[in-house]
Design a protein around this nucleic acid. Structure first.
Lengths: 258, 258
DNA sequence: CGGGCCCTTGAGGGACTTCAAGCATCGTGG
DNA sequence: CCACGATGCTTGAAGTCCCTCAAGGGCCCG
Protein backbone atom coordinates (compact mmCIF):
# COMPACT_ATOMS: atom_id res chain seq x y z
CA UNK A 1 0.00 0.00 0.00
CA UNK A 2 1.13 3.49 -0.73
CA UNK A 3 1.39 5.45 2.47
CA UNK A 4 0.42 4.75 6.00
CA UNK A 5 -3.25 5.80 6.28
CA UNK A 6 -2.82 6.73 9.92
CA UNK A 7 -0.12 9.24 9.14
CA UNK A 8 -1.89 10.46 6.06
CA UNK A 9 -4.88 11.50 8.11
CA UNK A 10 -2.95 12.95 10.99
CA UNK A 11 -0.92 15.09 8.66
CA UNK A 12 -4.11 16.58 7.37
CA UNK A 13 -4.93 17.44 10.93
CA UNK A 14 -1.78 19.41 11.56
CA UNK A 15 1.86 19.71 10.76
CA UNK A 16 4.00 16.99 12.24
CA UNK A 17 7.72 17.16 12.73
CA UNK A 18 9.90 14.41 11.36
CA UNK A 19 10.39 13.19 14.88
CA UNK A 20 6.66 13.02 15.47
CA UNK A 21 6.12 11.19 12.23
CA UNK A 22 8.75 8.65 13.13
CA UNK A 23 7.21 8.11 16.53
CA UNK A 24 3.76 7.61 15.02
CA UNK A 25 5.10 5.35 12.32
CA UNK A 26 6.55 3.12 15.00
CA UNK A 27 3.07 2.67 16.48
CA UNK A 28 1.72 1.14 13.33
CA UNK A 29 3.91 -1.93 13.39
CA UNK A 30 2.64 -5.33 14.37
CA UNK A 31 -0.73 -5.32 12.66
CA UNK A 32 -2.58 -8.61 12.75
CA UNK A 33 -5.64 -9.77 10.89
CA UNK A 34 -9.10 -10.05 12.40
CA UNK A 35 -12.07 -11.82 10.82
CA UNK A 36 -15.38 -10.08 10.13
CA UNK A 37 -17.67 -9.56 13.13
CA UNK A 38 -14.82 -9.62 15.52
CA UNK A 39 -15.34 -7.52 18.59
CA UNK A 40 -12.91 -4.68 19.24
CA UNK A 41 -13.77 -5.12 22.87
CA UNK A 42 -13.97 -1.73 24.41
CA UNK A 43 -14.67 -2.72 27.94
CA UNK A 44 -12.55 -5.80 28.02
CA UNK A 45 -9.35 -4.33 26.64
CA UNK A 46 -9.45 -0.81 27.93
CA UNK A 47 -5.70 -0.80 28.21
CA UNK A 48 -5.29 -1.09 24.48
CA UNK A 49 -6.22 1.23 21.67
CA UNK A 50 -7.09 -0.23 18.29
CA UNK A 51 -5.72 1.24 15.11
CA UNK A 52 -7.36 -0.13 12.02
CA UNK A 53 -4.91 -0.36 9.12
CA UNK A 54 -7.18 -2.00 6.55
CA UNK A 55 -10.78 -3.11 6.26
CA UNK A 56 -14.04 -1.72 7.59
CA UNK A 57 -15.03 -1.61 11.23
CA UNK A 58 -17.70 0.29 13.12
CA UNK A 59 -18.84 1.69 16.41
CA UNK A 60 -22.37 0.75 17.34
CA UNK A 61 -24.90 0.50 20.07
CA UNK A 62 -27.31 -2.32 20.73
CA UNK A 63 -30.85 -1.32 21.64
CA UNK A 64 -33.17 -3.11 23.99
CA UNK A 65 -35.06 -4.49 21.03
CA UNK A 66 -31.89 -6.26 20.02
CA UNK A 67 -31.43 -4.12 16.96
CA UNK A 68 -28.10 -2.48 16.34
CA UNK A 69 -27.37 1.08 15.33
CA UNK A 70 -24.00 1.84 13.80
CA UNK A 71 -22.99 5.36 14.79
CA UNK A 72 -19.81 5.58 12.76
CA UNK A 73 -17.57 3.67 10.48
CA UNK A 74 -13.98 3.04 11.43
CA UNK A 75 -11.84 3.27 8.31
CA UNK A 76 -8.18 2.48 7.73
CA UNK A 77 -6.08 4.95 9.67
CA UNK A 78 -8.74 5.46 12.34
CA UNK A 79 -8.22 4.89 16.00
CA UNK A 80 -10.88 3.05 17.91
CA UNK A 81 -11.48 2.60 21.62
CA UNK A 82 -9.27 5.58 22.41
CA UNK A 83 -11.99 7.58 24.03
CA UNK A 84 -14.63 5.07 23.21
CA UNK A 85 -13.36 2.89 25.94
CA UNK A 86 -12.72 4.70 29.14
CA UNK A 87 -15.33 7.05 30.46
CA UNK A 88 -16.87 7.91 27.13
CA UNK A 89 -18.70 5.36 25.16
CA UNK A 90 -18.90 2.79 27.90
CA UNK A 91 -22.17 2.04 26.24
CA UNK A 92 -20.67 1.96 22.77
CA UNK A 93 -19.35 -1.20 21.24
CA UNK A 94 -17.06 -1.68 18.28
CA UNK A 95 -16.41 -4.51 15.90
CA UNK A 96 -15.04 -5.31 12.49
CA UNK A 97 -17.43 -5.50 9.56
CA UNK A 98 -15.01 -7.09 7.13
CA UNK A 99 -11.66 -8.70 7.49
CA UNK A 100 -9.39 -6.11 9.04
CA UNK A 101 -5.77 -5.69 9.93
CA UNK A 102 -5.47 -4.00 13.28
CA UNK A 103 -2.68 -2.82 15.52
CA UNK A 104 -3.30 -2.98 19.23
CA UNK A 105 -1.48 -0.10 20.84
CA UNK A 106 -0.98 -0.06 24.59
CA UNK A 107 -2.82 2.96 25.83
CA UNK A 108 0.10 4.20 27.87
CA UNK A 109 2.25 4.37 24.76
CA UNK A 110 -0.15 6.72 23.05
CA UNK A 111 -0.57 8.75 26.20
CA UNK A 112 3.18 9.13 26.42
CA UNK A 113 3.35 10.33 22.84
CA UNK A 114 0.62 12.88 23.44
CA UNK A 115 2.44 14.15 26.47
CA UNK A 116 5.78 14.34 24.69
CA UNK A 117 4.84 15.76 21.31
CA UNK A 118 2.46 18.69 21.17
CA UNK A 119 1.88 18.17 17.48
CA UNK A 120 0.51 14.70 18.12
CA UNK A 121 -1.89 15.81 20.78
CA UNK A 122 -3.05 18.61 18.56
CA UNK A 123 -3.57 16.29 15.63
CA UNK A 124 -5.52 13.78 17.71
CA UNK A 125 -7.68 16.51 19.12
CA UNK A 126 -8.36 17.58 15.58
CA UNK A 127 -9.39 14.06 14.71
CA UNK A 128 -11.88 14.17 17.56
CA UNK A 129 -13.34 17.39 16.22
CA UNK A 130 -13.71 15.86 12.81
CA UNK A 131 -15.59 12.95 14.31
CA UNK A 132 -17.88 15.32 16.13
CA UNK A 133 -18.58 17.16 12.93
CA UNK A 134 -19.27 13.91 11.16
CA UNK A 135 -21.56 12.66 13.91
CA UNK A 136 -23.61 15.83 13.64
CA UNK A 137 -23.90 15.40 9.92
CA UNK A 138 -25.27 11.93 10.58
CA UNK A 139 -27.87 13.46 12.84
CA UNK A 140 -28.88 15.81 10.07
CA UNK A 141 -28.87 12.93 7.64
CA UNK A 142 -31.42 11.18 9.82
CA UNK A 143 -34.24 13.43 8.65
CA UNK A 144 -33.58 12.88 4.98
CA UNK A 145 -35.41 10.22 3.03
CA UNK A 146 -33.80 6.81 2.95
CA UNK A 147 -32.52 7.10 -0.61
CA UNK A 148 -30.81 10.41 0.04
CA UNK A 149 -29.50 9.15 3.32
CA UNK A 150 -27.87 6.19 1.66
CA UNK A 151 -26.51 8.32 -1.14
CA UNK A 152 -25.10 10.74 1.39
CA UNK A 153 -23.35 7.98 3.22
CA UNK A 154 -21.74 6.73 0.03
CA UNK A 155 -20.56 10.25 -0.78
CA UNK A 156 -19.01 10.52 2.65
CA UNK A 157 -17.28 7.19 2.28
CA UNK A 158 -15.97 8.08 -1.14
CA UNK A 159 -14.50 11.33 0.12
CA UNK A 160 -12.94 9.81 3.21
CA UNK A 161 -11.45 6.91 1.30
CA UNK A 162 -10.00 9.16 -1.36
CA UNK A 163 -7.99 10.91 1.32
CA UNK A 164 -6.18 7.68 2.08
CA UNK A 165 -5.94 6.58 -1.55
CA UNK A 166 -8.43 3.77 -1.10
CA UNK A 167 -10.89 5.19 -3.60
CA UNK A 168 -10.36 6.35 -7.11
CA UNK A 169 -12.37 9.07 -8.78
CA UNK A 170 -15.65 7.23 -8.70
CA UNK A 171 -15.55 4.03 -6.74
CA UNK A 172 -14.11 1.94 -3.94
CA UNK A 173 -14.02 -1.56 -2.56
CA UNK A 174 -16.96 -2.11 -0.24
CA UNK A 175 -17.22 -5.69 1.01
CA UNK A 176 -19.90 -4.90 3.58
CA UNK A 177 -23.20 -6.75 3.75
CA UNK A 178 -26.50 -5.02 3.08
CA UNK A 179 -27.62 -5.87 6.58
CA UNK A 180 -24.66 -4.03 8.09
CA UNK A 181 -25.18 -1.11 5.79
CA UNK A 182 -28.81 -0.96 6.84
CA UNK A 183 -27.73 -0.63 10.46
CA UNK A 184 -25.52 2.27 9.49
CA UNK A 185 -28.24 4.05 7.54
CA UNK A 186 -30.80 3.35 10.23
CA UNK A 187 -33.35 1.53 8.08
CA UNK A 188 -34.42 -2.08 7.78
CA UNK A 189 -32.44 -4.44 5.56
CA UNK A 190 -35.47 -5.00 3.39
CA UNK A 191 -35.94 -1.36 2.73
CA UNK A 192 -32.26 -0.82 2.18
CA UNK A 193 -32.38 -3.39 -0.55
CA UNK A 194 -35.25 -1.63 -2.26
CA UNK A 195 -33.64 1.78 -1.97
CA UNK A 196 -30.46 0.34 -3.39
CA UNK A 197 -32.30 -0.97 -6.38
CA UNK A 198 -33.95 2.39 -6.90
CA UNK A 199 -30.57 4.13 -6.90
CA UNK A 200 -29.22 1.52 -9.27
CA UNK A 201 -32.24 1.98 -11.46
CA UNK A 202 -31.63 5.71 -11.61
CA UNK A 203 -28.08 5.00 -12.69
CA UNK A 204 -26.74 6.79 -9.65
CA UNK A 205 -24.55 3.89 -8.61
CA UNK A 206 -23.73 0.27 -9.11
CA UNK A 207 -22.54 -2.22 -6.54
CA UNK A 208 -21.28 -5.63 -7.51
CA UNK A 209 -18.31 -7.82 -6.75
CA UNK A 210 -17.98 -5.95 -3.49
CA UNK A 211 -17.12 -2.80 -5.36
CA UNK A 212 -19.19 0.34 -5.33
CA UNK A 213 -19.10 2.51 -8.42
CA UNK A 214 -20.53 5.98 -8.76
CA UNK A 215 -20.73 6.85 -12.44
CA UNK A 216 -21.44 10.53 -11.92
CA UNK A 217 -20.17 11.71 -8.58
CA UNK A 218 -21.45 15.25 -8.89
CA UNK A 219 -24.86 13.93 -9.72
CA UNK A 220 -24.96 11.73 -6.63
CA UNK A 221 -23.66 14.53 -4.43
CA UNK A 222 -26.36 16.84 -5.68
CA UNK A 223 -28.98 14.20 -5.11
CA UNK A 224 -27.72 13.54 -1.60
CA UNK A 225 -27.33 17.20 -0.75
CA UNK A 226 -23.74 16.39 0.12
CA UNK A 227 -21.39 19.19 1.05
CA UNK A 228 -17.96 17.88 2.11
CA UNK A 229 -17.26 20.98 4.20
CA UNK A 230 -18.02 19.13 7.42
CA UNK A 231 -15.28 16.61 6.76
CA UNK A 232 -12.61 19.28 6.86
CA UNK A 233 -10.29 17.55 4.51
CA UNK A 234 -10.19 20.23 1.91
CA UNK A 235 -7.25 22.40 1.25
CA UNK A 236 -5.34 24.84 3.32
CA UNK A 237 -7.94 26.24 5.59
CA UNK A 238 -7.17 23.80 8.35
CA UNK A 239 -3.70 25.28 8.73
CA UNK A 240 -4.98 28.71 9.53
CA UNK A 241 -7.49 27.17 11.86
CA UNK A 242 -4.92 25.25 13.82
CA UNK A 243 -2.86 28.34 14.23
CA UNK A 244 -5.90 30.04 15.55
CA UNK A 245 -6.65 27.40 18.11
CA UNK A 246 -3.14 26.83 19.31
CA UNK A 247 -0.22 29.07 18.54
CA UNK A 248 3.11 27.45 17.82
CA UNK A 249 4.64 25.87 20.91
CA UNK A 250 7.77 27.98 20.70
CA UNK A 251 5.92 31.22 21.16
CA UNK A 252 4.30 31.15 24.51
CA UNK A 253 1.45 33.53 24.67
CA UNK A 254 1.56 36.13 27.35
CA UNK A 255 -1.66 36.70 29.14
CA UNK A 256 -3.00 40.17 28.96
CA UNK A 257 -1.19 41.93 31.74
CA UNK A 258 -3.75 44.62 31.91
CA UNK B 1 -25.62 31.45 45.34
CA UNK B 2 -25.78 29.19 42.35
CA UNK B 3 -22.33 28.90 40.84
CA UNK B 4 -21.18 29.89 37.45
CA UNK B 5 -22.47 27.16 35.11
CA UNK B 6 -19.41 27.43 32.88
CA UNK B 7 -17.08 26.66 35.75
CA UNK B 8 -19.39 24.04 37.15
CA UNK B 9 -19.17 22.04 33.96
CA UNK B 10 -15.48 22.51 33.40
CA UNK B 11 -14.73 21.34 36.88
CA UNK B 12 -16.53 18.14 36.12
CA UNK B 13 -14.26 17.77 33.15
CA UNK B 14 -11.09 17.96 35.15
CA UNK B 15 -9.44 19.45 38.19
CA UNK B 16 -8.72 23.12 37.85
CA UNK B 17 -6.26 25.08 39.92
CA UNK B 18 -7.39 28.21 41.72
CA UNK B 19 -5.51 30.25 39.18
CA UNK B 20 -7.27 28.51 36.32
CA UNK B 21 -10.62 29.04 37.94
CA UNK B 22 -9.94 32.71 38.40
CA UNK B 23 -8.90 33.08 34.78
CA UNK B 24 -12.03 31.33 33.59
CA UNK B 25 -14.24 33.28 35.90
CA UNK B 26 -12.90 36.46 34.36
CA UNK B 27 -14.11 35.31 30.97
CA UNK B 28 -17.69 35.15 32.07
CA UNK B 29 -18.08 38.85 32.73
CA UNK B 30 -19.96 41.18 30.45
CA UNK B 31 -22.94 39.01 29.55
CA UNK B 32 -25.64 40.71 27.56
CA UNK B 33 -29.16 39.61 26.73
CA UNK B 34 -30.25 38.32 23.36
CA UNK B 35 -33.86 37.82 22.23
CA UNK B 36 -35.22 34.48 21.00
CA UNK B 37 -34.27 33.48 17.46
CA UNK B 38 -31.21 35.58 17.49
CA UNK B 39 -28.41 34.27 15.35
CA UNK B 40 -25.14 33.40 17.05
CA UNK B 41 -23.52 34.11 13.74
CA UNK B 42 -20.79 31.57 13.25
CA UNK B 43 -19.43 32.79 9.96
CA UNK B 44 -19.85 36.45 10.60
CA UNK B 45 -18.15 36.67 13.95
CA UNK B 46 -15.51 33.99 13.75
CA UNK B 47 -13.27 36.05 15.97
CA UNK B 48 -15.58 35.69 18.91
CA UNK B 49 -16.69 32.69 20.88
CA UNK B 50 -20.12 32.68 22.47
CA UNK B 51 -20.61 31.52 26.02
CA UNK B 52 -24.24 31.07 26.95
CA UNK B 53 -24.87 31.93 30.58
CA UNK B 54 -28.63 31.50 30.67
CA UNK B 55 -31.40 30.42 28.34
CA UNK B 56 -31.61 27.82 25.59
CA UNK B 57 -29.78 28.01 22.29
CA UNK B 58 -29.04 25.44 19.62
CA UNK B 59 -26.84 24.41 16.77
CA UNK B 60 -28.70 23.50 13.62
CA UNK B 61 -28.48 22.96 9.93
CA UNK B 62 -30.92 24.10 7.30
CA UNK B 63 -31.77 21.58 4.59
CA UNK B 64 -32.53 22.32 0.99
CA UNK B 65 -36.21 21.77 1.67
CA UNK B 66 -36.05 24.68 4.05
CA UNK B 67 -36.60 22.52 7.08
CA UNK B 68 -34.26 22.82 10.00
CA UNK B 69 -32.58 20.09 11.99
CA UNK B 70 -31.27 20.95 15.43
CA UNK B 71 -28.19 18.85 16.12
CA UNK B 72 -27.61 19.92 19.70
CA UNK B 73 -28.86 22.19 22.40
CA UNK B 74 -26.59 24.82 23.85
CA UNK B 75 -27.28 25.09 27.56
CA UNK B 76 -26.03 27.58 30.15
CA UNK B 77 -22.32 27.13 30.59
CA UNK B 78 -21.82 25.86 27.06
CA UNK B 79 -19.49 27.40 24.56
CA UNK B 80 -20.72 27.90 21.06
CA UNK B 81 -18.90 28.74 17.85
CA UNK B 82 -15.59 27.67 19.32
CA UNK B 83 -14.98 24.95 16.81
CA UNK B 84 -18.31 25.44 15.17
CA UNK B 85 -16.98 28.46 13.47
CA UNK B 86 -13.59 28.05 11.88
CA UNK B 87 -13.01 24.99 9.77
CA UNK B 88 -15.51 22.76 11.47
CA UNK B 89 -19.14 23.42 11.20
CA UNK B 90 -18.88 26.01 8.49
CA UNK B 91 -22.17 24.53 7.47
CA UNK B 92 -23.61 24.62 10.97
CA UNK B 93 -25.57 27.57 12.24
CA UNK B 94 -26.46 28.53 15.78
CA UNK B 95 -29.13 30.65 17.33
CA UNK B 96 -30.97 31.28 20.54
CA UNK B 97 -34.26 29.52 21.14
CA UNK B 98 -35.31 31.57 24.13
CA UNK B 99 -34.11 34.78 25.63
CA UNK B 100 -30.46 34.22 26.53
CA UNK B 101 -27.66 35.99 28.25
CA UNK B 102 -24.44 35.51 26.36
CA UNK B 103 -20.82 36.53 26.76
CA UNK B 104 -18.88 37.15 23.61
CA UNK B 105 -15.31 36.12 24.24
CA UNK B 106 -12.59 37.17 21.82
CA UNK B 107 -11.20 33.98 20.42
CA UNK B 108 -7.62 34.96 21.07
CA UNK B 109 -8.35 35.29 24.76
CA UNK B 110 -9.51 31.72 24.98
CA UNK B 111 -6.63 30.52 22.87
CA UNK B 112 -4.24 32.25 25.19
CA UNK B 113 -5.79 30.55 28.20
CA UNK B 114 -5.57 27.16 26.57
CA UNK B 115 -1.92 27.73 25.77
CA UNK B 116 -1.09 28.94 29.26
CA UNK B 117 -3.02 26.56 31.46
CA UNK B 118 -2.89 22.84 30.68
CA UNK B 119 -5.88 22.20 32.89
CA UNK B 120 -8.05 24.46 30.80
CA UNK B 121 -7.05 22.83 27.54
CA UNK B 122 -7.66 19.43 29.05
CA UNK B 123 -11.07 20.46 30.33
CA UNK B 124 -12.14 21.93 27.02
CA UNK B 125 -10.98 18.84 25.20
CA UNK B 126 -13.07 16.85 27.59
CA UNK B 127 -16.05 18.98 26.77
CA UNK B 128 -15.54 18.20 23.11
CA UNK B 129 -15.49 14.50 23.87
CA UNK B 130 -18.70 14.82 25.80
CA UNK B 131 -20.34 16.51 22.86
CA UNK B 132 -19.17 13.74 20.58
CA UNK B 133 -20.62 11.18 22.91
CA UNK B 134 -23.87 13.07 23.05
CA UNK B 135 -24.03 13.46 19.29
CA UNK B 136 -23.65 9.72 18.89
CA UNK B 137 -26.42 9.11 21.33
CA UNK B 138 -28.62 11.35 19.23
CA UNK B 139 -27.78 9.22 16.23
CA UNK B 140 -28.85 6.15 18.16
CA UNK B 141 -31.94 7.95 19.33
CA UNK B 142 -32.90 8.49 15.72
CA UNK B 143 -33.99 4.89 15.29
CA UNK B 144 -36.26 4.86 18.31
CA UNK B 145 -39.95 5.61 18.00
CA UNK B 146 -40.94 9.24 18.34
CA UNK B 147 -42.34 8.89 21.85
CA UNK B 148 -39.19 7.26 23.18
CA UNK B 149 -37.05 9.72 21.31
CA UNK B 150 -38.80 12.64 22.92
CA UNK B 151 -38.70 11.03 26.33
CA UNK B 152 -35.00 10.36 25.89
CA UNK B 153 -34.35 13.98 25.03
CA UNK B 154 -36.17 15.14 28.15
CA UNK B 155 -34.13 12.74 30.26
CA UNK B 156 -30.95 14.11 28.78
CA UNK B 157 -32.02 17.67 29.41
CA UNK B 158 -32.99 16.89 32.97
CA UNK B 159 -29.64 15.31 33.69
CA UNK B 160 -27.63 18.07 32.06
CA UNK B 161 -29.58 20.80 33.78
CA UNK B 162 -29.27 19.16 37.16
CA UNK B 163 -25.52 19.41 36.86
CA UNK B 164 -25.75 23.18 36.74
CA UNK B 165 -28.53 23.41 39.31
CA UNK B 166 -31.13 24.46 36.80
CA UNK B 167 -33.32 21.43 37.38
CA UNK B 168 -34.64 20.01 40.57
CA UNK B 169 -35.36 16.36 41.12
CA UNK B 170 -38.10 16.09 38.56
CA UNK B 171 -38.51 19.20 36.46
CA UNK B 172 -37.05 22.27 34.86
CA UNK B 173 -38.01 25.49 33.13
CA UNK B 174 -38.45 24.86 29.44
CA UNK B 175 -39.71 27.92 27.57
CA UNK B 176 -39.13 26.37 24.14
CA UNK B 177 -41.85 26.13 21.51
CA UNK B 178 -43.16 22.81 20.29
CA UNK B 179 -42.02 23.69 16.79
CA UNK B 180 -38.43 24.11 17.96
CA UNK B 181 -38.61 20.95 19.97
CA UNK B 182 -39.87 19.11 16.91
CA UNK B 183 -36.80 20.23 14.99
CA UNK B 184 -34.63 18.84 17.75
CA UNK B 185 -36.41 15.51 17.85
CA UNK B 186 -36.51 15.29 14.10
CA UNK B 187 -40.27 14.92 13.65
CA UNK B 188 -43.01 17.19 12.40
CA UNK B 189 -44.59 19.69 14.80
CA UNK B 190 -47.95 18.03 14.37
CA UNK B 191 -46.67 14.65 15.36
CA UNK B 192 -44.67 16.09 18.20
CA UNK B 193 -47.86 17.50 19.59
CA UNK B 194 -49.60 14.15 19.43
CA UNK B 195 -46.69 12.32 20.97
CA UNK B 196 -46.60 14.88 23.72
CA UNK B 197 -50.23 14.28 24.48
CA UNK B 198 -49.66 10.59 24.57
CA UNK B 199 -46.85 10.99 27.09
CA UNK B 200 -49.02 13.31 29.13
CA UNK B 201 -51.84 10.82 28.93
CA UNK B 202 -49.58 8.10 30.25
CA UNK B 203 -48.70 10.36 33.15
CA UNK B 204 -45.06 10.28 32.15
CA UNK B 205 -44.76 14.05 32.13
CA UNK B 206 -46.57 17.33 32.22
CA UNK B 207 -45.62 20.55 30.53
CA UNK B 208 -47.35 23.79 31.28
CA UNK B 209 -46.41 27.35 32.12
CA UNK B 210 -43.14 26.71 30.34
CA UNK B 211 -42.17 24.20 32.95
CA UNK B 212 -41.59 20.55 32.31
CA UNK B 213 -42.36 18.14 35.13
CA UNK B 214 -41.50 14.48 35.23
CA UNK B 215 -43.47 12.85 38.04
CA UNK B 216 -41.56 9.57 38.01
CA UNK B 217 -38.10 10.05 36.59
CA UNK B 218 -37.11 6.41 36.80
CA UNK B 219 -40.23 5.47 34.95
CA UNK B 220 -39.52 7.88 32.13
CA UNK B 221 -35.89 6.79 31.95
CA UNK B 222 -36.92 3.18 31.66
CA UNK B 223 -39.45 4.04 28.99
CA UNK B 224 -36.86 6.04 27.04
CA UNK B 225 -34.14 3.45 27.47
CA UNK B 226 -32.04 6.23 28.94
CA UNK B 227 -28.64 5.41 30.38
CA UNK B 228 -26.78 8.57 31.47
CA UNK B 229 -23.40 6.89 31.04
CA UNK B 230 -22.76 8.67 27.80
CA UNK B 231 -23.03 12.06 29.46
CA UNK B 232 -20.10 11.35 31.73
CA UNK B 233 -21.37 13.48 34.53
CA UNK B 234 -21.78 10.82 37.10
CA UNK B 235 -19.83 10.93 40.24
CA UNK B 236 -16.18 10.27 40.63
CA UNK B 237 -15.67 8.13 37.64
CA UNK B 238 -14.46 11.01 35.60
CA UNK B 239 -11.49 11.35 37.85
CA UNK B 240 -10.47 7.80 37.25
CA UNK B 241 -10.98 8.45 33.56
CA UNK B 242 -8.76 11.46 33.55
CA UNK B 243 -6.19 9.50 35.44
CA UNK B 244 -6.41 6.89 32.79
CA UNK B 245 -5.51 9.37 30.12
CA UNK B 246 -2.63 10.25 32.40
CA UNK B 247 -2.04 6.66 33.39
CA UNK B 248 -2.76 5.57 36.91
CA UNK B 249 -2.40 2.22 38.60
CA UNK B 250 -5.93 1.91 39.94
CA UNK B 251 -8.99 1.72 37.74
CA UNK B 252 -12.58 1.93 38.64
CA UNK B 253 -14.95 -0.46 37.06
CA UNK B 254 -18.54 0.37 36.55
CA UNK B 255 -20.57 -2.42 38.04
CA UNK B 256 -24.18 -1.74 37.41
CA UNK B 257 -26.06 0.48 35.08
CA UNK B 258 -28.60 2.48 36.96
C1' DC C 1 -26.51 -32.89 -1.66
C1' DG C 2 -27.69 -30.07 2.40
C1' DG C 3 -27.18 -26.02 5.15
C1' DG C 4 -25.77 -21.29 5.85
C1' DC C 5 -25.63 -16.76 4.42
C1' DC C 6 -27.06 -13.17 1.72
C1' DC C 7 -29.94 -10.95 -1.45
C1' DT C 8 -34.53 -10.41 -3.26
C1' DT C 9 -39.61 -9.99 -3.57
C1' DG C 10 -44.54 -9.74 -1.97
C1' DA C 11 -48.12 -8.18 1.05
C1' DG C 12 -50.13 -5.92 4.92
C1' DG C 13 -49.81 -2.74 8.60
C1' DG C 14 -48.19 1.04 11.39
C1' DA C 15 -45.71 5.27 12.09
C1' DC C 16 -45.22 9.63 10.59
C1' DT C 17 -46.09 13.49 7.16
C1' DT C 18 -48.56 17.03 4.88
C1' DC C 19 -52.39 19.93 4.23
C1' DA C 20 -55.92 22.36 6.36
C1' DA C 21 -58.70 24.35 9.65
C1' DG C 22 -60.09 25.71 14.33
C1' DC C 23 -58.80 27.86 18.89
C1' DA C 24 -56.31 30.08 22.56
C1' DT C 25 -53.19 33.56 24.19
C1' DC C 26 -50.99 37.89 24.01
C1' DG C 27 -49.18 42.37 22.88
C1' DT C 28 -50.36 46.40 20.06
C1' DG C 29 -52.87 50.16 18.39
C1' DG C 30 -57.23 52.22 17.40
C1' DC D 1 -61.84 49.00 26.02
C1' DC D 2 -62.08 45.98 22.18
C1' DA D 3 -60.41 44.83 17.54
C1' DC D 4 -56.55 42.99 15.56
C1' DG D 5 -52.87 40.27 13.78
C1' DA D 6 -49.18 37.34 15.27
C1' DT D 7 -47.83 33.31 17.35
C1' DG D 8 -48.35 28.86 19.08
C1' DC D 9 -51.17 24.78 20.28
C1' DT D 10 -54.61 21.35 18.82
C1' DT D 11 -57.30 18.35 15.85
C1' DG D 12 -58.93 15.88 11.53
C1' DA D 13 -58.13 13.35 7.36
C1' DA D 14 -55.59 11.46 3.59
C1' DG D 15 -51.48 9.78 1.95
C1' DT D 16 -46.51 8.13 2.01
C1' DC D 17 -42.65 6.10 3.75
C1' DC D 18 -40.92 2.50 5.96
C1' DC D 19 -41.46 -1.71 8.89
C1' DT D 20 -42.46 -6.51 9.83
C1' DC D 21 -43.47 -10.99 8.51
C1' DA D 22 -42.85 -14.46 5.30
C1' DA D 23 -41.06 -16.99 1.61
C1' DG D 24 -38.15 -17.95 -2.45
C1' DG D 25 -33.64 -18.12 -4.79
C1' DG D 26 -28.46 -17.73 -5.71
C1' DC D 27 -24.04 -18.93 -4.03
C1' DC D 28 -20.41 -20.98 -1.35
C1' DC D 29 -18.69 -24.62 1.40
C1' DG D 30 -18.83 -28.72 3.97
Amino acid sequence: MSRNPFLQKLERAGRLTDEEQTALQALTLGAHALPPRHDLAAGEAADRVHLVMSGYACRYKTLETGSRRIVSFVLPGDLCTLHDAGPFGRDLQASTLTRCTVVEIPRHKLVALIASYPGIGRALWWVTLRELSRAREWIVNGVRSADKRLAHLFCELLTCLQVIDLADGNGFAFPVSQADLADAVGISPVHLNRVLQALRGEGLLSWSNQRLIIPDVDHLKAFAEFDPAYLCFDGFEHRAAIDRVQPAPERRVRLAAG
